[in-house]
């Protein structure tokens, strides 16, 4: 799965999970940029990613992420 396809799918997931009208993807997007992105919706986000891409994220993987770009890297790495 190439990076742009992952980004496209991830953007859809974020729109659903954070209940957004629209989302302009950037690699450095993080919780600080999205009002609805709090600790609980972050868990919903992680579970939605697990479900969509078919793998499980460990707690240390989740805690290592600083922005969405790193999430895309992680997904790419896990799917490789």
């Amino acid at each position: 799965m190439d990076r742009s396809a992952i980004i496209e799918q991830l953007t859809e997931i974020m729109i659903d999970v954070f209940d957004l009208d629209d989302l302009e993807y950037r690699d450095d997007l993080s919780a600080a940029d999205v009002e609805e992105w709090d600790s609980l919706s972050n868990i919903r986000f992680m579970v939605a990613v697990e479900k969509a891409f078919g793998f499980r994220l460990s707690n240390s993987e989740i805690e290592s992420l600083d922005n969405v770009g790193e999430m895309v890297d992680l997904i790419q790495q896990k799917l490789a």
């Binding site: 609980l40 868990i43 919903r44 579970v47 479900k51 460990s58 707690n59």
Partner: peptide, 14 residues
Amino acid sequence: PLRWHDAKIPCALD
């Protein structure tokens, strides 16, 4: 268990 340890959520999100 991850959700329980992480956020005291009592069951799987699903």
